[in-house]
Design a protein around this nucleic acid. Structure first.
Lengths: 338, 338
DNA sequence: TTGTATGCGTTATCAG
DNA sequence: CTGATAACGCATACAA
């Protein structure tokens, strides 16, 4: 079943078939329709290897995750993201190729190789950093990309699907503030990530605006151990915070465990909230108050944007991600004066 | 940078290059060595599209996951598995293509398409069922495959990497039995999966051997809601079980939540254990006693076996998966006579 | 043992 | 608007 078969059956040449099915000029509407009908009837699909070889599409997009392999499963984020990307891609018969890299050098090498071999038509970038070396390389390579980010892209750079971390932070703090919390601490992710920095800035601005003392922020590497340590540190202080916000729900659940062990009751003695939502936040007791985002939807949007960018001649504009909403559960309450 | 470049630089023909680098006869050891040296020096890697087109490798293997997209992230299993597969594949510069299918028909169609287009060199199958239609199709298509299973493969079928669910079940029950538990219930996964059936059989055999009454088994669809319902049902019975084993840690944590809400103390009033381990099992309080398996390692082994099967002429033998060990934590204790 | 020629299925160029 | 024809990079049967 090749394009030659389709051409033969439709009584045209293979180039006519190519033109007709790639929607480009060079063929009359009538023959185009006939060719499409024949192709559909024969169930023909272009051979992707041949297409890639002849310089067109590979019908594959890539995702490189730079995290230690063993820690990946801890967070639901990547799985949800992958599921969403997949779903958005499948509509166009485009596959997803996955790679776990252990270093930035590896990641950059992979992009070079993919470009050289036309292995993928584009890539999805996560965890943008400040002055991200990947963006530079990708524009140099001319490899289409979208970034899961927290702001629209700079002109000339790959478009982003973005969720405004500043607004998300304010929403959560607003809620805690309204409950009466004034000493709010934070257990954050690594400072090298843009979203960590954004949240820190938003939190500082929020508190400054209200003449509240600045928040104590303890950075972690997202690991459960670090989360536990940070929480232990915060709860041991002379004037312990009445509320702690965690950058991920793994950190938050680790913090919950520490509170339990220290005999600190949640939410009576300390309120706990997380920026990340997942099944785990709903499963633990008390259930975690979180900012919930639909990560699957996030992935779907990224996939569609990437496909558009691949098809487009010039740069396509960035796009806002799904809404993030506050899910109030059982881990937060007004502070009790101790 | 093509094989012609390498040939030119080494002063040989492209066919010599092909022979030399694919390790097949038709070239002397001396020239083979020289060609390899030149290829390494030039950093040449074969273009995968061209290889796929000319009937050789696509340097890509596929994984189809048949689960609803939104429920994927709930369980760490797939993420860990993907990370492991990736790691085992990367050693040979083979990529992983991922697809989430919503029905068996979709899944089968994908295998057909992948075969027709030589898009992948092989596939990894999870969640084998009894009389699995996929195995039949894959042998018919001649598409190499490995199955993540609980027993060695039938002769003539795709090899498996297998973990003996019967033994795992016995180990866990042995432990609970030694603690003194006699009324042990189980919250299981769907009965259509082989591993569910295996565990049920193993549990029945274990109890029968000790003249204990058969266990009450409540099947679920692996969802948190089903897990909560099942647990509520079991704990409401006249003679409630003193221990409950759960087929996954999501189910177990859901059960833990129900116990908490019903005022049933864990492990004092009921012991809880899970067949699945993940970060969540360690994060919740009380920490869950589980059977822990290294899923990343499982994936790595599957990847290596698949690569061997792809290279091999005939069928390769099945292989045992990583050891599953009991991790005793805080959710189990001897039953207290109430 | 080595080189030459052809095919894989598509896209793209360039005459008609 | 259409139909030959040449790449694309590799593998391989075949001839030297």
């Amino acid at each position: 079943m090749t394009s030659a078969d389709v051409a033969h059956r439709a009584g045209v040449s293979t180039s006519a078939v190519s033109y007709a099915l790639n929607g480009r000029p060079g063929v009359s509407d009538a023959t185009r329709a006939r060719i499409q009908a024949v192709a559909a009837e024969l169930g023909w699909r272009p051979n992707s290897a041949a297409r890639a070889l002849s310089g067109a599409r590979a019908d594959l997009v890539g995702l490189v995750i730079k995290r230690p392999a063993r820690s990946l499963g801890t967070e639901a984020f990547y799985t949800d993201l992958i599921a969403g990307l997949q779903s958005g891609l499948q509509e166009q018969h485009v596959g997803l190729s996955l790679l776990v890299a252990s270093s930035l050098e590896d990641e950059l090498a992979i992009y070079r190789e993919w470009t050289r071999d036309r292995r993928v038509d584009g890539v999805v970038l996560t965890d943008p950093r400040q002055g991200d070396a990947r963006l530079e390389l990708l524009t140099a390579l001319g490899l289409p990309a979208v970034v899961l980010s927290n702001h629209p892209s700079e002109p000339g750079q790959a478009p982003t699907v973005w969720i405004d971390d500043g607004a998300v932070t304010s929403t959560l703090l607003e809620y805690l503030w309204a409950l009466g919390h004034r000493r709010i601490a934070r257990v954050s992710g690594p400072e090298k990530y843009e979203h960590t920095v954004r949240r820190t800035a938003a939190m500082a601005a929020f508190l400054a605006e209200r003449q509240a003392p600045p928040a104590q922020v303890v950075a972690t590497d997202y690991s459960e151990g670090d989360g536990a340590r940070a929480t232990r540190h915060l709860l041991s202080r002379r004037k312990a915070p009445t509320a702690i916000v965690f950058d991920s729900d793994v950190l938050a659940v680790a913090g919950l465990g520490v509170a339990y062990e220290m005999g600190v009751s949640v939410p009576r003695d300390v309120s706990i909230a997380s920026f990340d939502d997942s099944a785990m936040a709903r499963l633990v007791r008390p259930r975690l108050t979180t900012m919930s985002q639909d990560t699957v939807e996030f992935g779907e949007r990224a996939a569609r944007l990437l496909l558009r960018q691949i098809d487009a001649d010039g740069p396509v504009p960035s796009e806002q991600g799904p809404l993030v909403t506050l899910s109030v559960r059982d881990s937060t309450s007004p502070p009790t004066s101790r």
